[in-house]
Design a protein around this nucleic acid. Structure first.
Length: 568
DNA sequence: TGAACAGGCGCG
DNA sequence: AAAGCGCGCCTGTTCA
């Protein structure tokens, strides 16, 4: 017989992954929906337990929690596992359930997966945060809450975890997630936790230099323009009222738009007057974005020795991808000639004795589309080693295709795989309705099996309410969302594939000479000891390219991996 | 004064 | 009938 325990932990609010002062102040345990207790024993203020055993609460909890017949239930286990580890309680090898992920797997479309929201969504009670507790938090942070003040809140949270598991587990199991899939998810959670703890090293001096340079550029531009380029109202005054240019584009709410596309239009008009106002506005906004979202944010978030510890959210996306926050290192600007963000990767510098490398799949989702659809016009050329868009441009425009045609085919292909309609095609390529229709039918004429696969996925989603990825993981769609089904299979299938690959990589790397630091959907960033590159890089490539190990279908086309040095 | 929304932009 | 998909996070604006 197993015992199910709802667990919730309280801490002093510091980050377990890098802060030596991080401390778990107490643990709550629920043995049923309405039977929970809180064990405070490391609070700065208020009562601390020394009972119930002579050798202490920590040991008592450890004995209980580590018992092999105890199954733990936690809301956001990734956090509570660290909190328990902080007490020397090891749960990495035991069976646990994360109610947040149970909820996410069964209903990935829920806008919020927090404990309070999910409980209420299920018809349960909300969290109980007293006014007094809120005041303490405001006054001195979580660290300042006396144990007696957090008591009720803490034990209630453990009950809520128990309650959510009680409600969600049957659905989780019925959809086939318990067992192998959940075990795989726990292993992946463990891997992500190791990645997060390692963190990503940055070059603080370079960040500071860029902040100084960018701030100066922004001040200069502001003096010239005398208007705030971040303010729509100001830009209207400047460009439309003062300079007399008619509005080029409107936002959905009817105000003039000054996004990149609109600014491009203003720029061509201003070019004739030899006026650089549009460029100045774009440069200002470019610096603003980069300084606040990247350089300054990196310096603020680094842990004290120049290391970033972003959080990867396992429940972050409906598609099954990870998301990343604080900071979001899945949106580091890619290399380009732009002065303000074109070389941002230089801000990342491996630890002494190491180098950074990024290994990424080429056209991962497109290759998956070829596999799923079995489209001979795509599978054939890929098998022969063609680059997909070379082959597609050739098929649609003949061997004499232009660079522009190739680029357009690429854009149209991704638009199509993402479910774009004719209207969007018209807008993006500036076509008449009939031309757009023809482009669409030409594309589908060349790749008819893709159209069929897409329609088949849509029908299936409409009939069953979901599509299943190759692992069994589901994406739930409403009747109206059938058009998203094929894209869900590609985006979600790719995410599942990269997850499997990372688990396979975990088996071959040693996490000392070679370790994973980041995942960016179709790529993985590694830190590798100098002098051992020849040992690890080929192994990484082989492991990543051997996707047929996960599903025999993936053997029908190659999945080539490109490896580049990353950072400065 | 703070929350919520809108617009904008970075990534795959 | 028509629909580009999936994110995080910044500044400015609006509203309670």
């Amino acid at each position: 017989m197993t015992v199910v325990l709802g667990i919730d932990t309280e801490s002093n609010g510091r980050d377990y992954r890098h802060d030596p002062l991080a401390k778990t102040t107490g643990v709550s345990i629920a043995t049923s929906v309405n039977n929970g207790d809180y064990f405070p024993f490391q609070h700065e203020m208020g009562f601390n337990h020394v009972w119930p055993t002579f050798y202490g609460v920590r040991e008592y909890l450890k004995d209980w929690i580590e018992r092999p017949d105890v199954v733990l239930v936690m809301h956001n286990a990734k956090h509570d596992i660290l909190a328990l580890e902080n007490l020397g309680i090891n749960v990495r090898d035991k069976l646990y359930y994360c109610t947040m992920l149970e909820t996410h797997f069964v209903n990935e479309n829920l806008p919020n997966k927090g404990l309070d929201y999910v409980s209420k969504w299920l018809g349960g009670t909300p969290k109980v945060k007293s006014d007094l507790m809120a005041k303490f938090i405001k006054w001195g942070g979580w660290e300042a809450i006396p144990s007696d003040v957090i008591w009720e809140y803490a034990e209630h949270d453990a009950c809520l975890a128990y309650y959510i598991h009680d409600k969600m587990y049957p659905r989780f199991k019925a959809e086939g997630y318990d067992g192998e899939l959940w075990e795989r998810e726990r292993k992946f959670t463990d891997l992500i936790m190791r990645m997060e703890r390692l963190g990503v090293p940055i070059d603080q001096d370079l960040c500071e230099q860029e902040i100084a340079y960018g701030t100066e550029r922004m001040e200069t531009i502001l003096r010239e323009l005398k208007h705030n380029p971040m303010s729509g109202a100001d830009l209207k005054k400047l460009l439309i009222d003062e300079m007399g240019i008619p509005s080029q584009k409107d936002t959905p709410t009817g105000r003039p738009s000054f996004d990149k596309e609109a600014m491009g239009l203003y720029e061509t008009i201003l070019e004739q007057r030899n006026d650089r106002t549009a460029q100045a506005i774009l440069e200002y906004r470019g610096w603003q974005k980069t300084l606040s979202s990247n350089y300054r944010s990196y310096l603020e978030l680094q842990s004290g020795n120049g290391t970033l510890h972003p959080s990867f959210k396992l429940h972050g996306t409906r598609s099954g991808r990870l998301s990343c926050e604080k900071p979001n290192l899945q949106q580091i600007p890619r290399s380009s000639p732009k002065r303000w963000n074109g070389s941002l990767k230089r801000a990342f510098r491996a630890r002494p004795g190491y180098r950074l490398f990024e290994a990424d799949y080429s056209n991962l989702e497109l290759r998956l589309a070829a596999v799923y659809s079995k489209e001979p016009n795509l599978v054939g050329p890929l098998q022969q080693g063609y680059k997909p868009f070379d082959s597609m441009a050739e098929l649609l425009h003949g061997v004499e295709y232009t660079d522009q045609q190739r680029q357009d085919v690429k854009v149209q292909t991704y638009m199509t795989l993402y479910g774009s309609g004719i209207k969007r095609l018209k807008d993006v390529f500036g076509l008449e309705h009939e031309e757009a229709k023809k482009r669409r039918s030409d594309w589908f004429g060349a790749y008819p099996e893709i159209l069929k696969a897409s329609q088949k996925a849509a029908r299936l989603a409409e009939r069953r309410g979901y599509v299943a990825m190759w692992t069994g993981r589901r994406r739930h769609l409403t009747q109206k969302e059938g058009y998203k089904a094929f894209n869900s299979l590609l985006q979600g299938g790719a995410a599942e594939l990269v997850k499997s690959v990372m688990l396979a990589l975990d088996e071959v790397i040693d996490w000392v000479e070679c370790r994973m630091l980041l995942q960016v959907h179709d790529s993985v960033v590694f830190e590798i000891a100098i002098g051992t590159e020849d040992k690890w890089l080929p192994l990484i490539r082989e492991t990543m390219e051997r996707v047929s190990a996960f599903h025999p279908q993936f053997g029908t086309v190659p999945f080539p991996v490109d490896i580049k040095e990353f950072g400065g």
